[in-house]
Amino acid sequence: MRYSFHAQGHPNVTSAHKTTFEVTMDPEIGEAADCIIGVSSEKSMLNFPEEFKKAIAKNNSSIRVVLTTKNAYDEIKGTGNVSLSLDHPTDIVCRKSDYVCSRTLMIKSDKAACDLNPLLIEDLSKGEKLNVDIIVE
Rank of each mutant, 00 (worst) to 15 (best):
Ile37Pro: 04
Glu75His: 03
Ala113Cys: 12
Leu116Phe: 06
Ser109Gly: 13
Thr104Val: 11
Glu50Lys: 14
Lys58Cys: 13
Ser83Gly: 08
Asn60Asp: 15
Glu42Asn: 14
Arg2Asn: 13
Pro118Thr: 06
Ile107Trp: 04
Cys35Asp: 00
Asn131His: 12
Gly9Arg: 02
Phe5Asp: 00
Thr20Val: 15
Arg95His: 13
Ile107Cys: 12
Glu137Ser: 13
Arg64Asn: 09
Arg2Leu: 14
Leu124Val: 10
Glu75Met: 14
Phe48Arg: 01
Thr19Asp: 03
Thr20Cys: 11
Asp115Tyr: 11
Ile107Gln: 07
Glu22Gln: 03
Lys18Phe: 11
Pro27Ser: 12
Ala33Lys: 00
Glu51Arg: 07
Leu67Lys: 05
Gln8Gly: 02
Leu84Val: 08
Ser15Cys: 05
Thr20Gln: 11
Thr68Asn: 05
Lys126Trp: 06
Leu124His: 04
Phe52Gly: 00
Arg95Ser: 14
Ile92Ala: 05
Ile37Gln: 01
Leu86Arg: 03
Pro27Arg: 13
Val65Thr: 02
Tyr73Ala: 11
Asn12Arg: 04
Ser83Trp: 14
Asp26Trp: 01
Asp87Gly: 14
Asp91Tyr: 03
His6Tyr: 13
Ile121Tyr: 03
Val13Arg: 00
Glu137Trp: 12
Ile29Lys: 00
Ser97Phe: 07
Phe5Arg: 01
Lys43Arg: 07
Thr19Glu: 06
Ala72Pro: 15
Tyr3Ala: 01
Ile36Val: 09
Thr24Phe: 01
Val132Trp: 06
Lys111Asp: 00
Asp74Trp: 04
Asp110Ser: 05
Glu137Val: 03
Glu50Gln: 12
Asp115Asn: 08
Ile29His: 00
Cys35Arg: 00
Ala33Pro: 00
Lys54Arg: 09
Ser4Gly: 12
Val39Asp: 00
Glu128Cys: 12
Asn81Leu: 10
Val136Tyr: 12
Thr14His: 04
Glu28Gly: 02
Asp133Pro: 02
Ser102Tyr: 08
Asn71Lys: 14
His6Gln: 07
Gln8Asp: 13
Phe5Tyr: 04
Asn81Trp: 07
Ser4Ala: 10
Thr19His: 06
Leu84Arg: 07
Pro89Gln: 14
Asp74Gly: 09
Val65Gln: 05
Asp123Phe: 07
Thr68Phe: 03
Val93Asp: 00
Val82Glu: 08
Thr19Met: 08
Asn81His: 11
Asp87Thr: 11
Ser41Cys: 10
Gly80Gln: 14
Pro11Asn: 09
Ser109Pro: 09
Cys35Gln: 00
Glu42Trp: 05
Gly30Lys: 04
Ala7Gly: 12
Val13Asp: 00
Ala57Trp: 12
Pro49Ala: 11
Asp123Asn: 15
Ser61Asp: 05
Asn12Cys: 02
Asn47Val: 02
Cys101Arg: 10
Tyr99Ile: 15
Ser44Leu: 11
Glu122Thr: 12
Asn12Pro: 06
Gly80Glu: 07
His10Cys: 10
Lys126Pro: 00
Ser41His: 07
Leu86Thr: 04
Lys18Asn: 10
Phe48Leu: 08
Thr19Lys: 13
Leu130Asn: 02
Gly30Ala: 15
Asp87Met: 09
Thr79Trp: 08
Val93Gly: 02
Cys94Trp: 08
Glu28Cys: 06
Phe21Met: 15
Ile76Gly: 02
Val132Thr: 12
Gly9Met: 07
Met25Leu: 10
